[in-house]
Structure formats: structure tokens, C-alpha cells
Design a protein around this nucleic acid. Structure first.
Lengths: 99, 99
DNA sequence: CATACTGTTCGTATTTTTGCGAACAAAGGT
DNA sequence: ACCTTTGTTCGCAAAAATACGAACAGTATG
């Protein structure tokens, strides 16, 4: 029952990010966004075999994790990576995985 | 509804690994093992505020993900990282996160 | 052999995640 | 104004994850 608060805090943070990455649909979205600046939910809907409400939920989770953000653009919504958070994920995994 | 099989297969694989990392206890265990060759479940039990049955379940999941293995040693069980799998995780995350 | 130690499995309860269709809301075009 | 397009939220159901204590199994030690 030791585990300092800092360590457990960090572990919880990594675990939360890992949880955000723990579904193929979310991996797909993040992979796309880390490649191409932004996308529309429709683009994703065309490519992913899930109901649009389901996709919307996954996007909501990614938003909740702070990894993406949506911007209203006409009738559509443009999604982008939150670069700052993405870099944090990169750094945390880099440290955790020692790579 | 496109998404080639290879991509979805890879995404599922990353998602599965991310899922294995998606709990603070499991992060703690992996972090410890990536530092110190091996450990005993008792070492973990002393440091983590969970019932031993709960810890055992987390270890079982890490085993199921292929990330650790246990070896009976007297009355105890010695856990080690499965280096080969750990390297695969490193490589997959490295590629996914572009780091 | 009896007892202590270590760790897993079982049974159970609770919570969280996942998924879908239907209903809803906002914006644009006609 | 009306309809279409786009995407979210709601309500629900099913599945999975999390956690615990109790019971169990194996090994060692007295």
C-alpha cells in the first residue's frame, strides 16, 4: 500500500489515455487525424461500419479525453486533433514505454 | 464502410494493447516489470491498495494480453515481462504515435 | 501430518462500455 | 416556410470490466 501520490497520479493519467485508445474506432479516428489535419464526421461515417450515433459517442469520448475538438463549419463539424494533448500522449507513452 | 482488413486488424491490435494498459494497476505492474526484470505478486500486493484477488485478475489480463508470464518458484510465482511482446507494443505505439 | 504462506478461482454485485434506432436540433438550400 | 443534410442526445439493452471476500490448491516448514 505504498505507491506515492505522484506515481499513482501519473499511472492514472496514462491509464486514462490508454483507455481512450482502447477501441478500434477511436484508433482509426486518431490515426486519421494525426495524418491529415482535420476531418468531418461524415468522412468517418463513410468509412466505419458503425451507426452514426455510435460514432458520435466515440468522438465524444475522444473529446472528453481532450484529444480532439470539433468546430462547427456550416452544416458540418470539423474535427481536429488537439495537438498539445496529442503531444502529451506521445510524451507520456514515450516515457512509459522507454522509446 | 471501407477500411481495409489490414488496417482494421492493426487498429484492433493496438486497441487491444491499449486496453491492457487502461488500468492504473496494470500500468504500475508493467512499469515495474519494465524496470526490474521480474517480481513476485506479493511485492505488488504490498504496494497496491487492492484485494489480492483483484490483483490476480489484473495479472491474468496482462497474461491474456501476452505481456507478462508467470513462473512457479517455490511457494511464490515470479512474473516477468514477455520482452518480445513488450517490444511489439513499443513498436506499434511508436508507429501509431509517430515517435 | 498440521499449519502457514502464496496465489488462483468462484460467486456475486456494481459500474462502465458499447451499440443501436428514434427523436431532436441546427444549418443550408429550394 | 419546407425539406435535406448533418450530427447530437435519449432511451434502452446487452456485454464487459472492476472489485471483493470466501473457498480452494499448491508448496514449504515446523
Amino acid at each position: 500500500m505504498k505507491v506515492t501520490k505522484e506515481v499513482s497520479f501519473k499511472n492514472e493519467k496514462i491509464a486514462r489515455y490508454a483507455r481512450a485508445l482502447s477501441h478500434p474506432v477511436r484508433i482509426f479516428v486518431l490515426d486519421l487525424l494525426s495524418n491529415q489535419a482535420c476531418c468531418y464526421s461524415g468522412d468517418l461515417s463513410d468509412e466505419l461500419p458503425v451507426a452514426k450515433s455510435t460514432l458520435s459517442q466515440h468522438l465524444k469520448e475522444l473529446k472528453a479525453a481532450g484529444l480532439i475538438q470539433g468546430e462547427i463549419e456550416g452544416p458540418k463539424i470539423k474535427y481536429c486533433l488537439v495537438r498539445e494533448r496529442w503531444e502529451e500522449v506521445q510524451d507520456m507513452f514515450k516515457e512509459f514505454l522507454r522509446i
